[in-house]
Structure formats: structure tokens, C-alpha cells
Amino acid sequence: MTPRIAIQEESFDLAAETARLTAGRQDVGGLASFVGLCRADDGLAAMVLEHYPGMTERAIARIAGDATGRWPLLGLTVIHRVGRLEPGAPIVLVLTASAHRAAALESCAFLIDWLKTGAPFWKREEFEGGAERWVEAKAADDAAAARWTPA
């Protein structure tokens, strides 16, 4: 199983991505998906996502490899958008397929937790009126990723 990893400016279609993972096969018993959206917090006008081309794909491939090593996955898709995104726009898609629900659900949560802390993306917020600020990393995100590390 080769994970599908895409970094792109354009949006994605959850139904099309789901169909892609299940086309022509009958062994998938569970699909889990996570879609992250741009929230309109505090008068946000847009979010601008920047990344490190090359390292981003490499980092996500490593995280995906960790997931396929931990869970018996039949399909794995990660699509992360970059560029300028307005409130309501989808930012990230994680989609996992397995024979059973636990592997699909757990690996999906693992992947989005690690994407937040282990892949080189940065978000800049633009507000109505012209103010802007870089989003700061959150300790809660580090804690969410750390919970997947065996004690």
C-alpha cells in the first residue's frame, strides 16, 4: 500500500478521495476521515499557509510510514493545502482505510496529531482591517502528538 500524499493550493473532494481508496476492492471494512477547516476566529479574513517544499513531503511520508507500521492499513491519503484560505475553506484531509474500524479511526487520529507537530507548515492569519499575525505552536498539540509515543 503506497500512501497518497499531496501538498496543493486547490481544494479536495472527500467523496472522490474516498472512492479512490475503495475502488475495485472489497476488503475495506472501515474508512476514517478527518477534514480540518479554516475557522473565522476574531474577525479572521484569511489564513495563509506556507511550507518547506521537499521537506514537507518527506516529513509526511515518514509519518505515514509510521502509521502503516502500527496499523494494518489498506489505504492512506493525506492532502494538505497551502496558500491563501478563507474561513470555511478545507485545509487538510486525512483518510485511512482498514479491514476494521479501530485501525482506521486510531491511525487517522495519529496522523492528524503528528501533522500538527511534525510537518513543516506555518499559518499566518490576516484580519479584517489589515492586521496579521503568525499562529503560534500550541503545547496542547505537542501533548496530543506525544500521547502516541509509547512510555
Binding site: 499557509l49 518547506y52 521537506m55 518527506r58 501533522l115 507537530t117 513543516p120 507548515f121 505552536a137
Partner: peptide, 25 residues
């Protein structure tokens, strides 16, 4: 293109990047 701490060696020919803590997802 791999995360590196302050003690990680650097040499001629390397690609070294500096950035704030990441905020994707």
C-alpha cells in the same frame, strides 16, 4: 530536510533551514 537540534553537525554542501515551531494541520 530533517529536523535537527542545536548539536546537529553542519558542513559545506548542507541545506540548513531555520523556522518557527510548525503550525500545520
Amino acid at each position: 530536510q530533517d529536523f535537527a537540534g542545536p548539536d546537529h553537525p553542519v558542513a559545506a554542501g548542507d541545506e540548513v533551514a531555520f523556522f518557527p515551531p510548525v503550525t500545520g494541520g
